[in-house]
């Protein structure tokens, strides 16, 4: 489990940020994206994937969450 932060990109999409490793990547897809259920598997543009427990869609970004890495560590 690692602390991550999700923020709104200027271009509209979501950005994933992992402070521990200073890793910044765009989120290509998010498993659940509705008001009631938001989160699940996050696919990153660098090939990595993380899982966050689905929550109600946060009213404001950025938000810090706990995430679990799926698969091997990416660069």
């Amino acid at each position: 489990m690692a602390n991550i932060m999700i923020r709104q990109a200027d271009s509209g999409g979501l950005v994933f940020y992992l402070p521990k490793r200073d890793l910044e990547a765009s989120i290509e897809s998010i498993e659940f994206d509705s008001t009631a259920k938001w989160g699940g598997e996050l696919k990153l543009d660098n090939g990595g994937a993380y899982y966050i427990d689905p929550i109600a869609k946060p009213p404001r970004l950025p938000i810090s969450l706990r995430a679990r890495r799926l698969g091997a560590a990416e660069d």
Partner: peptide
């Protein structure tokens, strides 16, 4: 880092 923190 600190800018992100203040944003959140």
């Amino acid at each position: 880092y600190i800018s992100r923190h203040m944003e959140e």
